[in-house]
Computed example of a mutant assay.
Amino acid sequence: MTLPIHIWERGYRFTSASYVNKYLHDHYETLALPNPTLQARDKSTAFMYYLEHGKSYYSLSSTSPLEIKPLLLFYGLTHLLKAALLTVDPFYPDSTSVLAHGVSTRKKKKQQYLFFQDEVKIQRNGLCTHLSEKLFHVKQLENKKISMGDLMECLPELDKLFYYFRPTKGTTSVTVNGDTLLMPSNISIQDIKESFGDDLEIKWNNNMISIQRYNKHLVFPIRSHSDTDIYIPSKLSYIHFLPHLIIHYLLLYNLSMIARYETEWWGNLIRSSPTHDYPLIQSFLQSTLYSGPSLIFDYLESNQEKNPLLE
């Protein structure tokens, strides 16, 4: 299976050095960063290469065997995330502490290991926390332990598959009408206020909750599965406030580690598919092949929309 061309068509303009230079310059100027002209000129080439190399990894992963697919997808997403990072942080990497992945997992898996029950731990330093803070303004993630099952349940693209393995759905569909969100009234108002902030206008209408002045660039806990399908977790916890891209990063990190260091378990999973792990992992790898680049371009385009100089 090859990647649909339209995903990468969204990034064609970033293959122009003059466009990228202006794109970065205007962002750095808007952020009041020092020497925006110099910084943009210095980082334009790195920005373009991160996108180009990321695309190469994704292209290879689309036709690669499952055994190595997690490795290619993880490094593909990492390169795309670094490109996005340069739009807000021209000094990356300013120290060796941000070069590590910023995540750890149990190296030796226990007997009867299940991926769904496995955990990753977010480190104080490293790319994961740096991305979360710089791109999404999410802090205080260090030392958090998060299970793979909880991460997967955050993804609406896996919800239909999960339904075969558990009785309840992890996400609830919401409707977007301009700057208004409509969602079922069984979702806690307190959860909504904590999710979106107290300054929103919340109304009830025909058993639906209407949220006015919705910001279309809001990242959490909204999840998008396509241009028209928008979801919110049925029950909210701090995990649901992780940015969508960070969820993909954490899942791919652990899967890439397993593909590298847990060869016997990984091989058995692929060959015999003994548990629910296999269809969930397979479905995730298939969906992240498309949603990873799409989410990156959503981020880059949202930055462009906020800056009229680039329209």
Rank of each mutant, 00 (worst) to 15 (best):
I146C: 02
S147Y: 03
M152A: 12
F136A: 04
Q112A: 10
N125Q: 12
K110T: 12
K110R: 12
K145I: 03
C128Q: 04
K121L: 06
H137S: 15
K109T: 09
E142P: 00
S132K: 06
G149I: 10
Q117E: 15
F116N: 07
Q112M: 06
F115M: 07
V120I: 15
R124K: 15
D118I: 07
M148A: 11
F136Y: 15
M148T: 14
S147F: 04
K134Y: 06
K110F: 05
F115D: 11
E153A: 08
S132Y: 11
T129D: 13
K110P: 06
M148I: 14
S132D: 05
I146W: 07
M152P: 00
S132W: 13
K121N: 05
K139W: 10
Q117I: 05
N125R: 06
S147W: 01
R124Q: 13
I122G: 00
L135Y: 11
S147I: 08
K144Q: 09
K139S: 13
L127C: 12
K108R: 13
L114V: 07
E133P: 01
E119A: 12
I146R: 10
G149M: 10
I122M: 06
G149Q: 04
L114A: 11
G149V: 12
K145S: 08
S147D: 05
K108F: 08
Q112P: 02
I146P: 00
L141A: 04
H137Q: 13
